[in-house]
Design a protein around this nucleic acid. Structure first.
Length: 468
RNA sequence: GGUGGAGUGGCCGAGAGGCGAGGCACAGGACUGCAAAUCCUGCUACACGGGUUCAAAUCCCGUCUCCACCUCCA
């Protein structure tokens, strides 16, 4: 049986995964800066790493998964000022929206979810170490900067040269405070009307990068296994995390994993382009499990071009799978038991080759449907078990209580009512009164109840309201 | 300018030297009172130009196009 190999952004290659502590895996994922509503790109990141986490857990590792919340930054302060609400209220509002979106898509809650503002004390330590080593300095404006030129190495993740970097306009403006335009802020000095916390170098608020280094050290220690995030965090965020943490004397992350974008019309989704697709908007069109199936279907390192058509196709495909599992459950008298086929294990171990898994599911679905018509319970069971096993890792198990709808308790009643209608239809069909039988079927269909005649008798399912 | 990524059939999307990934759509067929669902069959593609090789979508050289990052970003 194969063992897990993961692609490491640091080396641009896949390597066999070897955890620091045998049997344990520590993961840190850069979570959201809670300054707006979550769009599907944000959630794709959480979802990709959720699949990794589920797979590691199923592979027998004890996984510690930390995903932070950045609840203080320039944009949060700006937006709060514009809206006239306290910055912490704005941050909390969007943090709740992210939590709801994660939950709707069955992204497991992290082992711990630290907030930046709750870890100011922990940020002092790396700053102090960097100051002691002479790698950081306190500038005349009260900011604390990391002096990039003093580092042993810099930009090892993005493989760039410092001199090739373009200087930003901000750097040009603040050059008088920085010793070098490429130095970056660990700590920003207190400004009128902005929140601040005291430090030995004056009061202020954290720079963007320091919080992650500090929280990683607090929860995962000096060295940990996997650091994840979106592709756009490689530079500057992750480079600067490396700079701070290495500078502080910590070995830091072993493997760096980065997920690719969801694009719309070929371009990265972003608020400035106005092409953001909010999770809440899409959840009005498809169920959470369907949106997850769609967003999880591409390989995590591949760009994913969103289209409504692709989402609809994907939902239809998922309902086929679901329908098979439900029919199998009815025939077998119990839900399938998740199992993992060797090919599935190989695919997941190959840097999470989800698209290969999709092909395996499609093949199993075909075999399972044939078994269904042949009344081959053994084959039905094998196919259903393997499909459910794969869906479980992908976080799309229809039997997962996380996806149970509030209407579930109405199901027995509905079932009875529809069964009654179907009895009438069968009676009509028996006396060859097809006008009457079709009228019943059409009537149910108008209400969103679709009927399938199977060798085991008619089945019904509900078509979501928005699809009609 | 620097650093990466991508271009695969009508559409989506894997693969990374040699047995047609897979899905959707479409066409034909089986089943059905008719549908739906399901199954079977068909649709044989790798941006362009060279090269290496017995063999290239895959390796090499060149070209074109698109995307991302270069201090807000998942």
């Amino acid at each position: 049986m194969s063992s897990l190999a993961l692609y490491n952004t640091l080396t641009r290659q896949s390597h066999p995964f070897v955890p620091i502590k045998s049997g344990e895996v520590s993961i840190y994922l850069c979570g959201a800066t809670v300054q707006g509503s979550p769009h599907i790109g944000h959630i794709r990141s959480g979802l990709n790493f959720d699949i990794l986490r589920r797979w590691l857990t199923k592979s027998g590792y004890t996984v510690t998964f930390i995903r932070n919340v950045t609840d203080i930054d320039d944009k949060i302060l700006q937006k709060a000022a514009i809206e006239g609400t306290p910055w912490w209220a704005l941050a909390a509002k969007y943090e709740r929206e992210f939590s709801q979106a994660y939950a709707a898509l069955n992204v497991l809650a992290p082992t711990y979810e630290p907030r930046a503002t709750g870890h100011i004390t922990q940020m002092i330590e790396p700053m102090a170490r960097l100051m002691e080593k002479g790698l950081a300095y306190s500038a005349s404006n009260g900011d604390v900067y990391l002096e990039v030129s003093k580092l042993d190495s810099y930009l090892t993740l993005s493989h760039q040269k410092v001199e090739d970097l373009q200087s930003s306009t901000e750097d040009v403006r603040s050059e008088s405070y920085k010793r070098d335009p490429h130095d970056f802020a660990l700590w920003k000095s207190a400004k009128e009307g902005e929140p601040s916390w005291p430090t030995p170098w004056g009061s202020g608020r954290p720079g963007w990068h320091l919080e992650c280094s500090a929280m990683i050290y607090a929860y995962l220690g000096e060295a940990f296994d996997i650091h994840g995030g979106g592709l756009d965090l490689i530079f500057p965020h992750h480079e600067n995390e490396i700079a701070q943490s290495h500078g502080a004397g910590w070995p830091f992350a072993n493997v760096w994993m980065h997920n690719a974008w969801v694009t719309a019309s070929g371009e990265k989704m972003s608020k400035s382009l106005g092409n953001s697709l909010l999770v809440s908007t899409l959840l009005k069109k498809v169920r959470g499990i369907e949106l997850r199936w769609y967003l999880g279907s591409a390989h995590y390192r591949s760009m994913m071009e969103f289209s409504q058509e692709a989402l609809d196709d994907s939902s239809t495909a998922f309902r086929r799978i679901e329908s098979f599992l439900f029919r199998a459950t009815e025939i077998l008298g119990k839900p399938p038991t998740p199992t993992f086929a060797p090919q599935f294990v190989d695919a997941m171990n190959d840097d999470l080759a989800v698209p290969l898994v999709l092909a395996q599911i499609a093949e199993n679905l075909r075999i399972g449907n044939i078994a269904l018509t042949n009344n081959d319970d053994k084959a039905i069971s094998v196919a259903a078990n393997e499909i459910r096993g794969a869906l479980e890792i992908l976080g799309c198990d229809p039997f997962d209580p996380a996806f149970a709808s509030s209407a579930a308790d109405l199901a027995p009643t509905l079932d009875g009512v529809i069964a009654l209608a179907l009895e009438q239809r069968n009676a009509a069909r028996a006396r060859k009164d097809f006008a009457a039988s079709d009228a019943i079927r059409d009537g149910l269909s108008d209400l969103g109840v679709s009927i399938e005649d199977t060798p085991q008798g008619p089945r019904w399912s509900i078509t979501p309201m928005e699809k009609r």
